[in-house]
């Protein structure tokens, strides 16, 4: 029981990942596939960010750290969330905008050539 309660965030991330994967595999429309890819990306980001969370921890910005020669008081590690996954995921989100742009550009190129976004119609025209 304890295992279930303390792991619910992983369950949600697996669920989101399954939704995204199903959309990428089964959907016929290419833009739907792109949306599935975005959901897959956010599932991975949920996983990383939930790893970085700590019980009763604050945000990873040092309080009263303003100004030069700031307080050199001892900083409790348990007081601040883990900043490293935040950094990795922050850049991942901005890169996801880049990949979204490229994916949509490929969709528009396909539409210009085959006049359709449906997977099976494109395959019929290819044969």
């Amino acid at each position: 029981m304890q295992a279930i309660i303390s792991h619910y965030n992983y369950w949600i991330y697996i669920l989101l990942m399954m939704i995204g994967l199903y959309a990428m595999l089964a959907k016929n429309n290419l833009i739907k596939k792109v949306i599935g890819m975005s959901i897959f990306q956010t599932a991975i980001i949920v996983f990383y960010v939930s790893i970085s969370a700590k019980e009763h921890a604050s945000i990873p910005i040092i309080a009263h750290g303003h100004g030069h020669g700031a307080v050199e008081a001892a900083i409790d590690v348990a007081h601040y969330a883990n900043p490293l996954p935040h950094v990795l995921m922050l850049t991942a989100i901005v890169v996801s905008v880049g990949t979204l742009g490229v994916a949509l550009a490929i969709c528009l190129g396909i539409y210009r050539r085959y006049n359709s976004l449906e997977e099976d119609e494109i395959q019929e025209q290819l044969q």
Partner: peptide, 23 residues
């Protein structure tokens, strides 16, 4: 994940760089 390298970032960032936002 929060045992090995991140304690260094959390404790030393003000000392090293004078930037309160660790991220």
């Amino acid at each position: 994940a929060s045992l090995h390298v991140s304690p260094y970032y959390i404790t030393q960032t003000l000392h090293d760089t004078n930037v309160p936002n660790m991220v």
